[in-house]
């Protein structure tokens, strides 16, 4: 199981990296941590002519917290998020969700940008991005653009990135105090890809009713998505036992049309599971 032959470039600037991608017209691939790309190459499922390594490109490895939210550079690793002092307060849902990513060694090398670009339907980072209305910044030959996470993923292992574009970072909107949140995922073994998962948050209005609910799911459909039907059940209501049950039911129904089955679990199982996870997430939602 040896990798196919390719050339390797290690540009010092983003502009140069983008130019190499453009020159190779879709035959080049970006590598950073490589924790998703390397197995793909080992299985010879991809055979790029050149790999463009971002490790010498400056400025992509920063975590920035401002009043506009949390910005993660594309080369921020899972272990950076895990060990960051301010993030747990600035975005507790993000930190909790990322704690489920893969195993120790992979967490030391896998990156935010790599996960977004790989777009595995069961991966945590894409799911968190969609659930939280994050914006992904990308740089191409023609310049930079911001893409809403909801518009970024267009299928399993597929995004709207052009071949000359590189993800530079992602911004999560600011996290207001008092926000309720929960992250629940289900895998048979520690560190495995989730068979299903849910990231949700909502705020409380003056009367103690839920509003601004965001419910994102992973591992259930071809790409991460928000369940607006569930959000509608939650918004305007007090989160108590009956509502939790109603939301769970709505979740199972909401995914019915798109739920996928594979060797790890059938569509029916995932549909049942997502209801349980939404129920648990809502019941355990914390400040």
């Amino acid at each position: 199981m040896k990798l196919p032959s390719f050339e390797y470039a290690c540009p010092a600037t983003l502009a140069e990296a983008v130019r190499i991608l453009a020159d190779h017209e879709g035959e080049a691939k970006v590598i950073s941590g490589g924790q998703s790309l390397m197995p793909v190459l080992a299985f010879r499922l991809a055979a790029p002519s050149v790999l463009v390594d971002l490790r010498n490109v400056p400025g992509l490895d920063r975590i920035t917290i401002t009043e506009n939210g949390v910005h993660l550079g594309a080369r921020v690793r899972w272990c950076d998020i895990e060990s960051h002092d301010g993030l747990r307060k600035a975005h507790p849902l993000l930190v909790q969700g990322i704690s489920h990513v893969a195993h120790y060694q992979i967490r030391n090398r896998g990156t935010v940008g790599g996960s977004l670009a790989h777009a595995d339907p069961a991966a945590e980072m894409p799911g968190l991005a969609v659930a939280c209305d994050a914006e992904i910044s990308v740089q191409g030959v023609a310049g930079s653009r911001l893409i809403k996470a909801a518009d970024f993923f267009d299928g399993a292992l597929s995004t709207v990135l052009e071949f000359d574009e590189i993800i530079t970072g992602i911004r999560f909107p600011a996290w207001p105090s008092g926000r309720r949140w929960a992250f629940e995922e289900f895998a048979r073994r520690r560190g495995d890809f989730a068979m299903a998962g849910v990231a949700l948050h909502f705020d409380l209005d003056a009367a103690g009713r839920a509003c601004n609910a965001h419910v994102g799911v992973i591992g259930v459909c071809s790409h991460p998505c928000r369940l607006t039907a569930v959000e509608e059940v939650i918004n305007g209501n007090v989160v108590e036992e009956d509502l939790v049950a109603a939301a769970a039911k709505a979740a199972s129904e909401a995914v019915a049309a798109d739920v996928t089955g594979d060797m790890h679990a059938s569509a029916e199982y995932r549909q049942a599971l997502i209801g349980v996870l939404v129920e648990r997430a809502l019941a355990h939602a914390q400040v």
């Binding site: 590598i31 080992a42 992979i106 090398r109």
Partner: peptide, 25 residues
């Protein structure tokens, strides 16, 4: 393919899977 962990080495102090990393990296 990055699952079994037998190839783990430390790179700049952190444990990593050496099968999921190019030598040039």
């Amino acid at each position: 393919h990055g699952v079994c962990g037998a190839c783990t080495v430390m790179v700049d102090g952190a444990a990593m899977r050496s099968c999921l990393m190019l030598a040039v990296q």
